[in-house]
């Protein structure tokens, strides 16, 4: 409908009415991908007020600092090896600083899951062509991807920087080629594990702060209990103990060691434990499975 005013200058008001949509529509895969994109944006504060962007990017910035410092010192001392300075290894850098890593996971994980429950958005989400498994897959994928990026980006800075400050960059690349698969694999192991645990905890509450506190508390509590038990047995047997498996925060680091070293760290909490590597992998798989079961049960969206 169009109405015009008479006169030399005429305006027009258009009622565009309703236009049916006849463009392409994706299936469940497209919907899963859309939920993944939305979750990544939310976790990083994209399309949200600037305050939401500060924390994740600040933490990422802090995580990159050791790499920048190492590269800088490497450049300054390229002609004379530094005395009293130990360069960070790619293995050590997998979890950057474990506290920083846990903080990042605790910050981003609950933020993509808790508001859906707290704001009662779930009925709207599940009125879409989406199942509970799709929802879990998209959210887990989003957080695992972000955490993976958080772990890998500092490593890329470190590797790229170390390579560029060398006189023979290609030699450095060839000498350290194995880290090109070890680092992504180790970070992926850590990222999936932390993402699953933080999301499983977040699925049990609608409050972000509670989920974050429980996650951090669980990690520190198990680390403390494990340290006490391993310390006791170490004094008794002068070696590590299976009690090291209780430390949920450090559990994926044993798998990291298997990837980098081919065996457990002999000076670690599982050092000297017979079949310790097997126990570590088994416990890792068990914890991951429990977290996934909790998630799938919580979002089995039927008959609620």
């Amino acid at each position: 409908m169009t109405s015009t005013t008479s006169g030399a200058t005429s305006g027009a008001v258009y009622d565009r009415g309703y236009r049916p949509y006849d463009g392409p529509r994706g299936g469940r895969r497209a919907v899963r991908l859309a939920l993944f994109r939305v979750s990544v944006r939310r976790a990083l504060g994209l399309r949200r007020p600037w305050r939401q962007k500060v924390a994740p990017f600040l933490l990422l910035g802090v995580a990159v600092i050791p790499a920048v410092v190492n590269v800088g010192i490497g450049y300054v001392t390229r002609d004379s090896p530094p005395i009293g300075f130990e360069f960070i290894t790619y293995r050590d850098y997998v979890v950057v600083s474990s506290s920083l890593f846990l903080l990042f996971v605790a910050l981003t994980g609950p933020d993509v899951l808790c508001p859906d429950r707290r704001n009662k958005v779930l009925p709207l989400l599940f009125a879409r062509p989406l199942t509970g498994a799709d929802y879990v897959a998209a959210k887990l994928g989003a957080i695992a991807t972000i955490v993976f990026a958080f772990g890998v980006i500092p490593q890329i800075v470190l590797f790229g920087g170390q390579m560029l400050v060398r006189d023979r960059a290609l030699d450095y690349l060839r000498d350290n080629a194995e880290v090109l698969w070890q680092v992504p694999a180790a970070v992926a192991v850590v990222a999936i594990y932390y993402a699953a645990i933080v999301l499983a905890i977040s699925s049990l509450t609608g409050r972000r702060i509670v989920a974050a506190a429980v996650f951090i508390g669980l990690m520190f509590a198990t680390a403390t209990v494990s340290a006490i038990l391993v310390g006791d047995t170490s004094q008794q047997f002068n070696q590590g103990s299976v009690a090291g498996l209780i430390d949920l925060a450090a559990l994926p680091l044993h798998l990291r060691d298997l990837l980098f070293l081919g065996h457990l760290d002999p000076e670690g909490p599982l050092g000297g434990v017979a079949k310790g590597g097997l126990f570590a992998v088994g416990t890792y798989a068990a914890v991951l499975s429990v977290a996934l079961v909790v998630l799938f049960v919580r979002y089995r969206w039927e008959d609620r």
Binding site: Y21, G23, P24, R25, G26, G27, A30, V31, A34, L35, R37, V38, L124, L125, R128, P129, L130
Partner: peptide
Amino acid sequence: TFAELSGLPPRA
């Protein structure tokens, strides 16, 4: 967001 979650491409 809910349009995307119904399968529509982001721009649409």
